[in-house]
Simulated assay, not measured.
Amino acid sequence: MTGTAHTTGTDLLVVGGGPAGCAAAVMAASVGMRSLLLEARPELCGRLRYVRSLENVLGGFASGPDLAASAAADVARAEGCRVELGARVVRLDVRGDRVVAVLESGASYTAAHAVVATGTGPLGPADTGWLHDPGGLAGAPLWEADPAAHEGRTVLVLGADRPLGTLLRAAPAARVRFLVAHPPADGYKTAEVRPDPRVELVSVRRVVLEGARRGVAARITTAAGDALRWTADAAYLNIGSAPVLLPGDLVPDSTGYCPPDRQHPRVHVAGDLRSARAQRIMTAMGSGGEAALRAYYALRGVPDRPE
């Protein structure tokens, strides 16, 4: 399969199998398009399965795993949609009237149009100017944390991004102390979690992680210039995310995101990859369906703005 280009019977490539990509595949099937969904993970909606509480989606879904299972089932029923899991796309190019997706394996697939829904990935300490973790003690992103595993313990949270509020809502009775160190720029994000008595917030200028007799320690210089030392049983990263870009013909803006109106007419961007301002499950799914419709109308020569 390595080095082989596959072109037969596909109108639309969908790169990314999160909520936006799944919605694109289902929409494409509903209008008779033949699609191929390429997802790097071993399952669809992999990150959604860690979201323990949902409050902003239709359909009565109370948790991410429930919605993920439903989305995967909808894709499985979508006529004309093929799915390849474990298919990591490493490059996307427009070549004439075709879009080519090159996989890590060396294989490639082509279609007339592509929906790109690669979303975002978590930032690491090296992406910040304030967090220093020479021993790699910070561990996993916060959205992977299980509060039940830390019952009665102290957790150090590095950054004040939205997953903290989601975790607190999902585990209202969990007896966990959360020590949250965040840069001043994240201060506006703390309003949601500040009233929770389990949370202690500090605005920081610098944090250095080091080993401790029990868990992890943090040497902190606060935004006011004070020195603190916190110890915790575990530490998690919660410093935000960055768009997952593909080399080739995607066009990012100055922030690294890919606005739909800047892309080649055969490349349709959906989901969190579009911008940092609308990163919600509902908006991702809607944009996935819209992106597939744009490809459908383009294939039939229907202009975006009818005259």
Results as ranks from 00 to 15, higher is better:
60 G>D: 13
58 L>W: 13
239 I>S: 08
261 D>G: 00
17 G>E: 09
155 V>G: 04
97 D>G: 09
7 T>Y: 11
242 A>P: 03
272 D>F: 14
34 R>M: 09
200 E>D: 08
245 L>E: 02
175 R>M: 02
216 V>P: 07
270 A>R: 10
74 D>G: 12
97 D>N: 11
37 L>P: 11
115 V>M: 03
211 G>N: 03
304 D>Y: 02
32 G>T: 01
160 A>Q: 01
126 A>N: 00
50 Y>L: 14
96 G>I: 07
256 G>W: 00
156 L>Y: 08
35 S>L: 01
239 I>Q: 11
218 A>W: 02
223 A>D: 15
131 L>D: 12
75 V>I: 00
43 E>Q: 15
299 L>I: 03
6 H>N: 12
95 R>S: 08
266 R>A: 15
19 P>A: 13
173 A>G: 06
276 A>P: 01
215 G>S: 07
199 V>R: 08
101 A>H: 00
17 G>S: 05
222 T>L: 10
219 R>M: 11
12 L>N: 03
65 P>R: 03
23 A>F: 14
276 A>C: 10
7 T>C: 01
254 S>N: 14
120 T>W: 09
47 R>L: 02
162 R>C: 00
149 A>K: 06
169 R>M: 05
95 R>H: 12
195 P>L: 10
71 A>F: 15
140 A>Y: 00
257 Y>E: 09
138 A>Y: 04
183 P>I: 12
36 L>Q: 09
206 R>Y: 03
134 P>S: 04
207 V>S: 12
94 V>W: 02
44 L>F: 14
130 W>Q: 06
224 A>V: 03
33 M>I: 07
161 D>I: 11
96 G>V: 03
196 D>T: 09
105 S>P: 00
31 V>A: 13
105 S>M: 02
